[in-house]
Amino acid sequence: MLSGFVDHSLNYSYIIMIIYKQFYSLKSAADQGSLYQLRNVVRRVDVQGPEGVTSSYRSHMNFVQDCLDSFVLGACLHMFGMDSLDGVPVNVEIPHFLHLASIEEQYAWLKELGEQLFKTYIKLNEDSLINIQMTDQVSEMDDQELLLAEMYDSRINRYSCTCNKTYKTKGHFKRHLEKEHEWGFALNQDTTNSAMHSKEDHVAVWRASFMKLSLLLRDTEDAYQYGDGDRIFRNVKFEMLCADAAHHTKYRLWLWRMQAYETAILSPRQAVEYKWNCTANTHGGKGKNIPNDNLVETLVQKIKKKLREQGSNITHNSAQRIALSIQIQQELKENTSQVRKRDVQNQLLTETLSLIF
């Protein structure tokens, strides 16, 4: 069906590159809880930032996963009101007979806690970021605005004061009231917004942003491992937004192209085939799929190895045969190895039984 079609699906390795570019900085070595500070605490010398992701992908991936687990665990401890893992929850009451409840009821209880944690520590809203209350000040500003509106004379299009002076602009009129009549005005809206912004918990914003992107990485990795096309293409929309925020035009274009093929360019039948064939399983077993992009890279390396073995005897036809047969040869090799291993095990079992009986 898709013969001749160029597969533009992209693996999820670029997400970890974005994470390190956005959240990993040598300047944050003294900031407690930053990635670089945590890297020094646990002595992960194999983590070198965005420059080392390509050469040491697995170590950088594991470090991000460890940091995500620690942040989620810290959020759980704070939400439960626990000082340590051995402590007793203070803010959350655990049902006494939870262990006797059904699996569905236990899952519902855990899901409710997870949603509460997500809303409080990951999906931050404006109310949870601002630590000051501006209610009284805003109310005072509203009262003053009403008084100023009452002192505006629409017949002459001017503000009229009780001292018989008139002003065309509100700013001049307010300065007159402050200087001559000792009025006190509250902060204007711009100053209020600036003060509110200065009180934002920037550490919470950084931590929540890191957890959002790391959770997206974990969910995308899990979707590829299980070949879940729905989740893969659902996460592509969020990944494209992240790539846009990080100014990665190449990744954004590739992700947009994936959606375009699935939504508009391919026929419905081809779109379904494309959507559910983004991964490949070379060893069998559930949860062991890899992205097609990784499979292509693996096959390219094996093809290059075969071509180097031919040396000066290489021709166009031989290179073509190698490229077309390398995957079949690899499958035959793995199947033969498995059969040989099974035969050896059966032989050992037969010899053991003969010695016993």
Rank of each mutant, 00 (worst) to 15 (best):
L2V: 03
S3I: 14
G4N: 15
D7M: 15
S9T: 15
Y12G: 06
Y14A: 11
S25C: 02
D31M: 15
L38R: 07
R43H: 13
R44G: 14
V45S: 08
Q48P: 00
Q48T: 10
G52L: 04
G52R: 01
S55C: 01
S55N: 05
Y57V: 04
V64Q: 00
Q65W: 00
D69S: 06
S70H: 11
H78P: 03
H78T: 14
F80T: 05
G81M: 09
M82T: 13
S84E: 09
V92R: 01
P95S: 15
H96A: 12
L98V: 08
L98M: 14
H99M: 14
L100E: 09
L100G: 04
A101Q: 12
A101P: 00
S102D: 11
L110D: 02
E112M: 13
G114S: 10
L117A: 09
F118N: 12
I122R: 02
L124M: 12
I132A: 04
I132E: 08
D136Y: 05
D136R: 09
D142M: 13
A149C: 01
A149L: 02
Y152Q: 00
R158W: 05
C163V: 02
T166Y: 09
T169Q: 07
K170P: 07
R175N: 15
H181E: 14
E182T: 00
L187T: 02
D190P: 01
D190A: 06
N193M: 15
H197K: 12
A204D: 10
K212C: 13
L215I: 14
R218P: 07
Y224K: 06
Q225P: 00
G227E: 07
D230Y: 12
I232T: 10
R234S: 15
R234P: 00
V236Q: 01
V236N: 03
V236A: 06
F238C: 10
F238L: 06
M240G: 08
A245G: 02
A246D: 12
H248F: 07
K250Y: 13
W254F: 04
W256A: 08
M258P: 13
L266G: 13
S267R: 15
R269A: 09
A271Q: 12
V272S: 10
Y274G: 04
N277I: 02
C278K: 09
T279Q: 14
H283Y: 15
G285N: 13
G287Y: 08
D293M: 07
V296M: 10
K302Y: 07
K302N: 07
R308M: 08
N317W: 03
S318K: 06
A323S: 04
S325R: 05
S325N: 04
Q329A: 09
E331H: 05
V339R: 14
R340D: 13
T350N: 13
L353I: 06
L353W: 01
L353S: 12
F357L: 04
